[in-house]
Design a protein around this nucleic acid. Sequence first.
DNA 1: CAGTCGTCATCGCCATC
DNA 2: ATGACGATGGCGATGACGACTG
Length: 1247
Amino acid sequence: MCTIGSAVFDISAPEYIIGDPFEIEPQSISSLRSARKRVCIVGEVCSFKCEEARGGGGMFITFGIFDGNATIEVRTRRLEAEDAQEISDTISNGMIVAAVGDVRPDKNSPDMLFYYSAIAKIKRLPREDTAEEKRVELHLHTNMSAMDALISPADAVNTAKRWGHKAVAVTDHANVQGFPEAMIAAEKAEMKVIYGLEAYFVNDSASPLFGEWDRAFSDEVVVFDIETTGLSVVTCKITEIGAVKIRDGKVVDRYSTFVNPECHIPEEITELTSITDDMVKDAPTVREVLPEFLAFVGDDLLVAHNAGFDTGFIRYVAKEQGIEFDSPYLDTVALSRYVNTDLKVHKLDAVAKYFGLGDFNHHRAVDDAEMLGLIYLKMLEKLEKFGIEDYGRLVSEIHANTDPLTLKTYHMIILVKNLTGLKNLYKLVSLSYLKYYRRVPRIPKSELDKLREGLIIGSACEAGELFSAIVDNRSDSDIEDIASYYDYLEIQPIGNNHFMVDEGRVPDEEALRDYNRRIVAIGEKLGKPVVATSDAHFLDPEDEIYRHILLAGMKFKDADKSCPIYFHTTDEMLREFAYLGEKKAHEVVIDNPNAINDMVEEVRPIPKGSFPPHLDGAEEELTEKCWTRAHNMYGDELPEIVSSRLERELGSIIKNGFAVLYVIAEKLVHFSESQGYLVGSRGSVGSSFVATMAGISEVNPLPPHYYCPKCRYSDFSNPDKVGSGFDMPTRNCPVCGEKLAQDGQDIPFETFLGFYGEKSPDIDLNFSGEVQGRVHKFTEELFGSENVFRAGTLGTLADKTAYGFVAKYFESKGESVCRAEADRIISHCVGVKRTTGQHPGGIIVVPREKEVYDFTPIQHPADDPKSDIITTHFAFSYLHDTILKLDELGHDIPTKYKFLEKYSGISVMDVAMNDRTVYELFATTESIGIPQMDVTDKETKMLGLMIGTLGLPEMGTSFIQQVLVDAKPKNFADLMQISGLTHGTDVWLGNAQDLIKNGICDISHVVGTRDGIMLDLIRYGVDKNLSFKIMEMVRKNKKGKPIPEEMVAAMREKEVPEWYIDSLRKIKYMFPKAHAAAYVMSAIRLGWYKVHQPVAFYCAILTVAPEGFDATVVARGRRAVVDTMRDINARWNDATQKEKDLFGAMQFANECMLRNIKFLPVSLEHSHAKEFLPEDGNIRMPFMSLPGVGENAALAIMNAREDEPYFSVEDLQLRAKLNKSVIEILRTNGVLDRLSETAQISMFDLF
DNA sequence: CAGTCGTCATCGCCATC
DNA sequence: ATGACGATGGCGATGACGACTG
Ligand SMILES: Nc1nc2c(ncn2[C@H]2C[C@H](O)[C@@H](COP(=O)(O)OP(=O)(O)OP(=O)(O)O)O2)c(=O)[nH]1
Ligand SMILES: [Mg+2]
Ligand SMILES: [Mg+2]
Ligand SMILES: [Zn+2]
């Protein structure tokens, strides 16, 4: 055993993994400040990296060793690939090691580096809960508490499990987004989770009137105010009391006196109140004043502004003097909020001004009381106008009319007891986000009362209602009223509230303990269990720094203040609450939390099973539609291949509940087309022939075939064994002589739904961005807005932002950390919730017989109450296997189609799929009239002119162009394969490309589409279902998880070649063939316009996707365009994203200019706001192509031009409401050249 | 006339297909 | 200098500008 700071390492059984065994006598890393030989260190491996050495020729490995306190960067010498691999296999992040080696300073930084000679694996003892009887944590924040907490739900669950706790609660701020991860971890660890949250509770049934008082307004009341030496009841004293007695709307008596506080009045208070030490030094003390004042009050109602404060002080001193004080009182702040709804600020002077009551000496009790008296009468007058004339009526009216959005929020813990409670909680969360959101989602008492079944309510922390009432020194009966609403009361460690001492709100820690003692006493009196909770925001004490970084990143002033809110063990808690006595401590730490846990049933936040929607007649409708369409295409007597495929697919689709989705999708396509926008095909659904027949997908997955559009003859023989129907020679119908249509991409249905419907795919559709919103609305109409929701997303703190936060944090502290340490800290900060958003197109469909609350709460994206979009509270990925989704994505291709048709007058659907000149685009620039340049010349490549694919979707990037040049595709099938090979990391480079280069196989046999994987494996003899599973695992493996041993073994058993298995291992993502087919089809279509309708092509592409296009560069001519590209290209890695976009646009513009199509300058008369318009064989650039002229300005210029031409710059600025920067941009770009500055000229003309 | 608030344009980052 | 998956859009921050307000 050895200790470094608070970290304890077990070195009793070292496992020597690199180098010779050595004696483990570690130094603390922070002590290594200078070069030393043969030092031993221990710690956790972090930030492990294995990189190719610069300039090739070997590898470098770097990692950090973190000993719980400091990190040192470890480097290796230059290594051979095999050695590097061996080390990578032995050492990994999170491993605890001891190492010996030399410490040397880094040449390039102030840090020290460690060069090891030997490494041993050891253990670090984590914090353990060794208590006999364990506590249960009922208040814990996961990293789903936005920018506030760091515990991953899995860590919470696993730590509690390791500690032997029976359960652990997940209680994030206002949301339940930690539930799904907690559920997954809990099921894996067989652990119980108590699901809950920490709500922002508002008491909308609170009234401004405290205590019993239901007389008429005309009865006598005492309006009063006090001045004090500060805000805290405990540490501050009264300096002045002022009061007026009011009866029948008139002041009938007054009381006013200074009070000697018997202490110094702080300067800032004197400044505010103008009450000095001098003024009060001869005044009576509160011991004399209080009885006098209370006698003045008698049995009257007390009225004060923020009365809790004033009565709190009076009550405190009364108690000190052994005088009973329980007068009813009314708070005019609350009353003003209710009466003066048009007022935002309800401070005394603001309200006085509001009623026009003139100036007064604010912050002097005598004057404030007088003024408040007047205000009070005004408010009563106002109420009387509404027929409210007594206090009883007032209270009931207020209850009925309070706006929860204006009330003070209190923290409150809500735990889920059972499934009823879970659903109620989801409803409450939804309400809080959708209806009661202001700054935070609020849960009003009135709603909670309605939905309280199945929920357990706890009093939460210092920001809870109970704790606040105690701090404010509210009356015993008030406090007990509050406490009685809760099912249990919470107390927390002193450290949690220590900030109150620091801020001077309480004198010392003892006062904090007194608060906890008070809560314990209240619990005893009311019979409410009191439980001790951590209010954990991070797991271990040493993790506090990560929270500081988060808070500092959010620019919080007090970010670096210590607040040790870690997950406490039982013993830590028992020690913490020892001051309550051993027995009581045991009760609040162990017994009561366990008792609460015993009330809680185990529930699953997302139900098991899948819940497809139903729609009467959907199955029949789909079936009918498909057969009809099939007969229309392939004849009355369907070829076997067609009918058997239809039957098989329909069976599977209907059985797995997908028919409804098909039917809805079909209606959506119809809807979009009715709006004038074609729909782009996408995704695995193109593997379904039913989708083709239903018109959802234009990909035909049948084998290559001919069919006659006239007589419905068909031929599936495919004698040339081509890979795509589009690649067959053209033929005329042997029956009727008509030219035959050709189609068929040969795709298995199973890519979509699996062999046994074991997959939960979605249906993907590409809609023009211009109709996407309408399509979403239409889906709601089709299936009901109660059942259709946009999927929500969760935005988290990821690498780059975390890096910025960490850098900023240490910079502001004037400290520096080594890269390994920075990376380690970053890795701990990553994953914390920041915001919510909307899924690109995912629309989930809840079956009619269910409610959305059976699956997830709902909310607005980014919590924005003004948004008219409602999203699922849970990210879709967690609902993936439970409910179905339609992916109604936005895409530019359908919009491009629209503009191509508009500018060329040629229908997209008439474009042939087998025009040779179009295929030539993928091999040369000749077919667009640009003489072929040398493809081996770097300049050619830079210009993007090795081939003619610039502007073709997903075919025009440098990378893909290079692959096309190398692979020389000849037909549609080749292009599909290349499409697959060029979409995904480690698919082509370092994988397929090498296999081809090394002659191991040719391009048609490398892994290019995911369907290929399944079919290849089946061909090798691997079980078809396992083949399917391997395909599914390989196709999205972004993190590079290894293929499970049993899968590898099954492949080896069937003699699947090692290179093939290796290839699969590397793949990070892979297209389904259907998607490749759909995208190549659109590339071919756009290519046709590129060859045959160039002006329309360039106009359409630029109009729809103008990113990076800069009219100021293009206007300077082709030279300038090329120079700009050269410049950016020369410093590519330092170029900004904007410059990279500009580069792409300039490639495209250059190609266009080489085809003798000119870009005409932006023109006040001729330019469109955003469209690049064809103009006499050239292209007129739009206003928006000028950087700095945004959509609004551009549209304004165009729209105001409609009425009459602009006759001066002034006229333009006025009519189009342009600001001066836009005018300047227009001026410098010559747009205003022919316009006079003001209307003077025309004025002149009049005379 | 300084301060505040909303709007617009743009950018970096992030999530997702 | 290298290598490189492509595309789309939402959210938050920032800065310039101008209207409004006390
Ligand atoms: N280039 C590229 N395209 C992607 C990526 N992810 C998805 N796509 C494209 C290709 C997919 O077929 C299409 C639809 O995505 P989905 O997530 O719905 O997956 P897909 O339909 O392929 O399979 P599914 O059966 O729905 O699980 O979007 C990606 O990472 N890169
Ligand atoms: Mg899909
Ligand atoms: Mg999808
Ligand atoms: Zn025919």
